[in-house]
Computed example of a mutant assay.
Amino acid sequence: MPLWNIYHPENAYTDADKREIADRIVGFYDGFLPRFYVNVLFQPLPAASFLIGGEPTDDFVRIRVEHIARQIEDPAEQERFMNHVAQRLAPFIGERGLRWEMHIGETPFGLWTISGLKPPRPGTAADLKWRTENRPSPY
């Protein structure tokens, strides 16, 4: 699963913005993962609770992503992914005058379950079943 945590200033995003951002993030993984694998959490923070260099800020977005279902091992692919993310999220961050930072951590596949089930390996019949049904199920 990719788990996206987006820490942002209070009132930076409307509910419609959040839906659009989440849709764009889900789109990064279309064809690779079941849509239900992709989780996006918006975490608004008041300036007094978001400090950079010890100073309160209300113009910074911090994105923390956990890749668990798949890892990006090829450096060229990593660069393409990061550039694609920057381009697709620019209307909600840089183009709004917000500064931002992002990182992706990658968790070993074996240390992950969904609803108590070990997810199927990529490219298997069970993986196709999960993508088609868009939910976890025994296999």
Score class of each variant (00 low, 15 high):
Pro2Glu: 04
Pro2Lys: 05
Trp4Lys: 08
Asn5Pro: 02
Ile6Val: 14
Ile6Met: 12
Tyr7Met: 11
Tyr7Ala: 12
His8Cys: 13
Pro9Phe: 14
Asn11Ile: 05
Asn11Ala: 14
Asn11Lys: 13
Ala12Asp: 10
Tyr13Met: 04
Tyr13Leu: 04
Asp15Val: 05
Ala16Met: 02
Ala16Ile: 02
Asp17Tyr: 00
Lys18Ile: 02
Lys18Ser: 03
Arg19Pro: 01
Glu20Val: 03
Ile21Thr: 04
Arg24Ala: 06
Ile25Val: 11
Val26Met: 03
Val26Lys: 09
Gly27Leu: 11
Phe28Leu: 13
Phe28Pro: 04
Tyr29His: 09
Asp30Met: 05
Gly31Tyr: 10
Phe32Trp: 06
Leu33His: 07
Pro34Asn: 13
Arg35Val: 10
Arg35Phe: 07
Phe36Gln: 06
Tyr37Arg: 07
Val38Lys: 04
Val38Cys: 12
Asn39Gly: 08
Phe42Gln: 07
Pro44Val: 05
Pro44Cys: 05
Leu45Tyr: 09
Ala48Leu: 02
Leu51Cys: 09
Leu51Asp: 08
Leu51Ala: 08
Leu51Arg: 06
Ile52Pro: 06
Ile52Asn: 07
Gly54Tyr: 06
Glu55Trp: 01
Asp58Ile: 04
Asp59Trp: 07
Asp59Ile: 05
Arg62Gly: 12
Arg62Gln: 15
Arg64Tyr: 13
His67Met: 07
Ile68Asp: 02
Ile68Tyr: 01
Ala69Trp: 00
Arg70Thr: 06
Gln71Trp: 02
Glu73Val: 08
Glu73Pro: 00
Asp74Val: 07
Asp74Gln: 05
Gln78Asp: 14
Gln78Arg: 15
Arg80Glu: 15
Arg80Leu: 15
Phe81Thr: 11
Met82Phe: 15
Met82Gln: 14
Asn83Thr: 13
Asn83Leu: 15
Asn83Met: 15
His84Trp: 05
Val85Ala: 13
Ala86Ser: 14
Arg88Lys: 08
Pro91Val: 06
Pro91Thr: 08
Phe92Thr: 09
Ile93Gln: 10
Arg96Asn: 10
Arg96Ala: 11
Gly97Val: 09
Gly97Leu: 11
Leu98Asp: 03
Glu101Thr: 06
Glu101His: 07
His103Met: 01
His103Ser: 01
Ile104Tyr: 02
Gly105His: 03
Gly105Phe: 02
Glu106Ser: 02
Gly110Met: 04
Gly110Trp: 02
Leu111Pro: 00
Leu111Ala: 06
Leu111Gln: 10
Ser115Glu: 05
Gly116Leu: 03
Gly116Tyr: 09
Leu117Asp: 12
Lys118Glu: 10
Lys118Gln: 12
Pro119Gln: 10
Arg121Leu: 15
Arg121Pro: 00
Gly123Asn: 12
Ala126Asn: 09
Ala126Tyr: 13
Asp127Ala: 15
Asp127Trp: 15
Leu128Ile: 11
Lys129Asn: 07
Lys129Cys: 05
Trp130Lys: 07
Arg131Thr: 12
Arg131Gln: 15
Thr132Phe: 03
Glu133Ala: 15
Glu133Cys: 03
Asn134Arg: 01
Arg135Ala: 10
Pro136Arg: 01
